[in-house]
Amino acid sequence: MEILIAFVIGAMTASGVFLTLRGRTFPVVLGLTLLAYAVNVFLFAMGRLTVGLPAVIDPTQGGYADPLPQALVLTAIVIAFGMTAFLIVLALKARAEMGNDHVDGLHLSEDEASLKNTLPPRSQRASRKARHADQQEAGQ
């Protein structure tokens, strides 16, 4: 069971780190969520993995599971939940204000840039790259 848990935490952390390093806000949000999941399982495992022991002290049983990590995980889950919700709203705000969902707010993908030309211009909010594309097209 230890090996399985270790692999689960490792896989989630690796995916989380990979997604966090992506250039767009949505994968970054997903990556942070995965990292939060990984750390929750990790915290849980730090109370040592036990099977069949009561969560609350029971005089008839030989032992009990460590209750502290459970309390820590509960706190961590609530905080991570709130932070993720905040981050999603902030990412949407950034998308609306900067006209694209890149974390630097500067780049448009090819399809977005071509789509942009068919839409009414957003004037100042257009990104540097999109403006560059517009100029090139005007020159042709």
Partner: peptide, 23 residues
């Protein structure tokens, strides 16, 4: 908003690392 987004993301990563260390 852009500066804030960077600030929030780096601090969320920091919080995750904090939990790993505390755990």
């Amino acid at each position: 908003t852009r500066g804030g987004l960077h600030y929030v993301v780096i601090n969320l990563i920091g919080s995750t690392l904090f939990l790993f260390a505390v755990g």
